[in-house]
Design a protein around this nucleic acid. Structure first.
Lengths: 344, 344
DNA sequence: CTGAAAGCGCTAACAC
DNA sequence: GTGTTAGCGCTTTCAG
């Protein structure tokens, strides 16, 4: 039998070059030199450097990142993790997190980092953050949304510095957070509602998430507010809102939604019931996701500047990777008046 | 001087255990045994196995993935890449890709894979796919959207099997694609428009993307259609649509949008011009993103089942990783009639 | 059942 | 300038 058609003949037609050593051999130099040449180091003679780079291109050679990472103790990847704490189906539907993720991807790519994305269900694995930070698979970690995991993040941040979380800042906390002043946002929303004549205001949202809880807290500085728990998963959300809406006895005339998504669901339910917005009930959302301005009527909301937030997170993380100590960032949210509230 | 306060004293208070060897030492066994114990291998005595696992937990020890990956030649990560080919600002706003990504994340996490997310601008680096597939950082690759990169994907697929792309299937192609029958989708849309009385139909979209081109092609089987190029980035999109709308001389009475996002933009512009939908102009979208049903009037559209698509991609990729040969998957899209088209 | 030893593919002193 | 060498931290034969 000839050598053809052996079972495990995986070799490329003309001996694929897969390692530095392979390339070194056909270039007639040592692996070390190839390594340096490919890294564009000045140390190696320009002539041979060019020759090696050419050879590499010709053979489609690409050095193994994994090996390089192990050796240099530097991965060039940032882990972005979304904990699905208090409402695990949130992610699929929530345009806010998705938009934030998009911007993070932009920023990270921009400065040469890869993005390792993880969704996590904390209840099923209390160790989640330690696992992510200690795996050696990334140089730093970004947590999108504290959800109900504030304490976990706080604990890990004790001895893991390259960590930034999107979310609420609580005085004296150890971990670095970037986010909006949720309390202020809640206050702005309530103030607006009150100013334009609302007398009985309801808050739709799940206060298990600390960001949400802060919004309600802020709103309550301004007015008496009834809290109507609302799940974040689209399918449950609608049912929650519907039943709450129907069971309100002294009818409400103002809705403060914990997010634009919830506000949109409210509008849907209100329309089905023939209730006029903003005539009968005024509605105000939170986030200012792209869709907010496109509804009819367009949604009045509290805007969080996602792009700026994402840039800040990446910037801070880079600083921390460089050993700098940084504080948190609290960004002021802004009222965007549109069509779901009355003027005044 | 005592040993305190030396410059590079990075050691933890009581000597942090970071490597197998560290743990081996305090357990009084060899590194090999620790490795086996932590992997839960039966080979090692249950007693010592438990002891080692306990020790590991106590010290918060987590084996270095990078090293393990290098040794085993298996990373446990799947790369998901979004090429921003013909319209590089698409991603931030496109809920379709984001939703697909969400589902992919679910499916991958489900079966123990990590997700390495990359955005890529092919013009700036023609080598992009080779770079991603050969880096040794992942076991397989999913490309979300062929964009105008059909040929690149085709080329790489020649000798890289664990690759699946979301997109159009073209008879005889080498790479594995999962996606909707775009041509059929286009046809369904045009048929509906014609059936409910549209006489002059316009197609809004950028046919540089092959998926989009196929939709137009399908539509043209049914009716004569004028193509109005439209960028996918939200800001440009509005301007494109506005100018096109205003310059149409014999007014159109049907709009076939290449995506729901474009359809939504069209509706916005139409509303601004006081044009009634579906009275004066009927509109039909493509994708059926979550927001489609929430507009007013709710959008008639061609639905692609994203969840099923994502599951199929992951399933196929796993098969390919197991050495199986698989074909492509073409899923039938479905007309969802809602409020932006007339009955009939 | 466990230890010793040989690498995975790359990089960075250290030589010459 | 370039080769040699010694690992990065882990897994897995191969001995015993």
């Amino acid at each position: 039998m000839g050598p053809r058609l052996t079972i495990d003949d995986q070799s490329e037609p003309s001996g694929k070059v897969r390692t530095l050593a392979d390339l070194a051999k056909i270039a007639g130099v040592s692996a070390g030199t190839v390594s340096r040449a490919l890294a564009g180091k000045e140390l190696v003679n320009k002539t041979t450097r060019d020759r090696i780079q050419l050879l590499a291109r010709q053979h489609g050679f690409r050095p193994n990142q994994m090996a390089s990472n192990l050796r240099t103790q530097r991965t060039g990847v940032i882990r972005v993790v979304i904990p699905l704490g208090h409402d695990r189906r949130q992610h699929i539907s929530d345009p806010f997190f998705m938009t934030l993720l998009g911007h993070l991807a932009d920023e990270l790519t921009e400065c040469g980092y890869e993005l390792l994305l993880s969704r996590v269900i904390p209840d099923q694995d209390p160790d989640w953050l330690e696992r992510m930070t200690n795996s050696g698979m990334s140089d730093g970690t970004i947590v999108i949304g504290q959800s109900d995991q504030f304490d976990t993040i706080e604990r890990v941040a004790q001895d893991y510095t390259p960590l930034v979380a999107w979310g609420n800042y609580r005085k004296g906390q150890a971990h670095c957070a970037v986010g909006s002043d949720n309390r202020l946002g809640g206050r702005l929303a309530a103030e607006k509602l009150v100013a334009s004549g609302a007398r009985k205001i309801a808050f739709f949202g799940d206060t298990a998430g600390i960001e949400i809880a802060s919004r309600l807290e802020g709103a309550r500085k301004v007015a008496e507010i009834v809290h109507l728990p609302t799940h974040l998963a689209v399918d449950e959300m609608d049912a929650d809102i519907a039943s709450n809406l129907d069971s309100m006895d002294p009818a409400i005339d103002g809705i403060l939604a914990a997010s634009d998504l919830i506000a949109m669901a409210c509008m849907r339910q209100l329309r089905e019931r023939g209730i006029d917005v903003p005539g009968d009930i005024q509605v105000i959302g939170f986030d200012d996701i792209p869709a907010a301005s496109q509804m009819s009527p367009p949604l009045t909301t509290i805007k969080q500047d996602i792009a700026v937030g994402a840039a800040a997170m990446v910037d801070i993380l880079k600083r921390r990777l460089a050993g700098e100590k940084t504080g948190s960032v609290v960004m002021p949210p802004r009222l965007i008046e549109r069509g779901t509230t009355r003027i005044g």
